[in-house]
Every structure is written in structure tokens, then in C-alpha cells.
Amino acid sequence: MTATAEKKLHDCRDAWVETLVELGQADPRIVAVVNDSVGSSKLGPFQSEFPERLINVGIAEQDMVGVGAGLANGGKIPFVSAASCFLTARAMEQIKVDAAYSEHHMVLVGQSPGMAYGELGPTHHSIEDLAWLRAIPNLTVVVPSDPEETRQAVRWAAQHDGPVFIRVSRMGVPDVNPAGYEFAPGKAVTLREGSDVTLIATGTVVSRALDAAELLASRGVSARVLSMPTISPLDKDAILAAAAETKGIVTVEEALTSGLGGAVAELVVQHQPVPMRFVGVTGFAPTGEVGWLLDHFGISATGIAEAASEIVGA
């Protein structure tokens, strides 16, 4: 029923690995560190081309992130890539201390985040990562929404002298950014102008926010859609402008609403209080595939439109 269903969907891991191989060809300092996650990170092409630069520590996430920090100390640019649920939860202290507090130039790549593992259940979902990681100082948290943004975020992280987390989608997503799009860290992207209400979405569900805006338009509600590829640091100007220029804000994420939603609310409540609604995951998921789970939690065009209608009273 949604426009999304008719568009070509992409697994952003393909863009991630294509980009990493290109970076690896240009710069011998680029290395990958994995926890037996070559397949799930789609790193086969990188491993084939640079077998000695793919360091597989086995199923050992704390070691994986520590080894990444050591490689950075040794002059390498490590991309530490693993399923986001294990990378973030199992190695949180290493992310805090070895990456963020240490200000190492290293890139943590959280694969298949959110509820991408669907039926495998909440042990394999990574719905907490945005809330956890935005709480850590010094760490840039990037959540690309489509393949082109994934490519550009990976390229940017390779040359940014500091720790970065990139959440790479496995669930199919359509292209949402316009031709000629340029990723700028810490900057929101206005994908649709609107004056009644603002939908601020991140990552995999930006397309669902766009569908919701279309639905709202059919009901005479003008919804602005901001894509927020960087959760930390936030684009404060874009958020406060939306709070000032529209009646309220709906945040949309494939994560606990304490991720993007909490971050936006902390800002808005201090500087430009307006009504808000939070569309996202609200608890451990029941059994189901990811598309069904998103709908179950109301992270759908209709669910988002309903939240926006509560704000505008339409």
C-alpha cells in the first residue's frame, strides 16, 4: 500500500563493502576487524583483495574493539565491523574507553541493526544502540538512510580523525536522498518542505516518514520531513527551526525512542518547547519478520501520520 513497496530496495551492506574496498585500494592503512562476521558484514570482497588486512579475532567482541584501538595506535585506520547488537552491548566499555575516551581514529560499524534480524528475536535486535551510543562523549553516531548516504558516511569516517559509529542497514531500503546529495556530518537533510508539522526520521525508516508525509498531504496536512543521519552531534539549528516554524515534531526511528526521540526532546524542551510524539520501538519485540515488526510498533506510514495528526489536531 505504501510507495516504498513499489521502489527498488537496497541492502546498504553492499554499498558499505564496495566503499571499503575502494578505500582499501587507495590507502594501505585501511584494515577491517571482525568477530567471525565476514559473511554478515558482507566483507568477502575486502577479504579476497586484502587477506592480510582482514583481522578476524573470532567470537570475541571486547578483544575486537581493543585490537581495533591498538591498530589505530599502530597507524592503521580500522573499521571494526560486527552485528550491531553484539558490537555495542558486548563491547560497550571498549567503545567508551578504547575508542571514544581515547579519541582514536577508528570506525565502529554496526551491521544489521534495529530489528533487521526479525524472527531471530530481541537477543539479536539492536534497538538500544542509539540511546547507548549517543550517551558517550566524543563519539560521532551516524545512521545512513540509503546506499549513497552509506557510501559517503564510510568515506567521511575514513578521513575523520576521531571515533565514529556507523549503523549499516541490512533491511532493504529505497533511495531517499536526491541526486547530487552530499552527506555533511552533524547536518539534517530537508527531504520535504512543510509548514504544519515536522517528521524527523533516521536511517532505515526515513522512507516511511516520506510515505507518511504523502499520506498527510492527502488529508491536507503539510509535513516537513527532516532526515537525521547524525544522531550525535545533533543538528540543533534544523531541529529548533522546525520547532519554531511548525506546530510540533514527530521522531521516527527503528530503535528505542530514547535514541533519536530522546535526543531531539532534550533539545526542544530546553529551547523551543512544542508538542512531540515518538514513533519507534517501545519494548522487546514479539516474534515476527522486520517489516511486520515495524508495522506492529506503528513505525509505518499510517502510524507516523496518526502521531502527526495528534499534534496538528487533524
Binding site: V31, V33, E52, R53, I55, Q62, D63, V65, G66, V67, G68, A69, G70, L71, A72, N73, G74, G75, K76, P78, E93, Q94, V97, D98
Partner: peptide, 17 residues
Amino acid sequence: GHGLPIAVGTAIAGKLD
């Protein structure tokens, strides 16, 4: 429990170089 994994990483980097 942090220093030894980091040391392993920097030793791998030295070996690569």
C-alpha cells in the same frame, strides 16, 4: 582487561608494517 587487546592490535599493526 583493556590493555592487552590494545597491545595485540598495535603488535598486529607492527607486523603488517
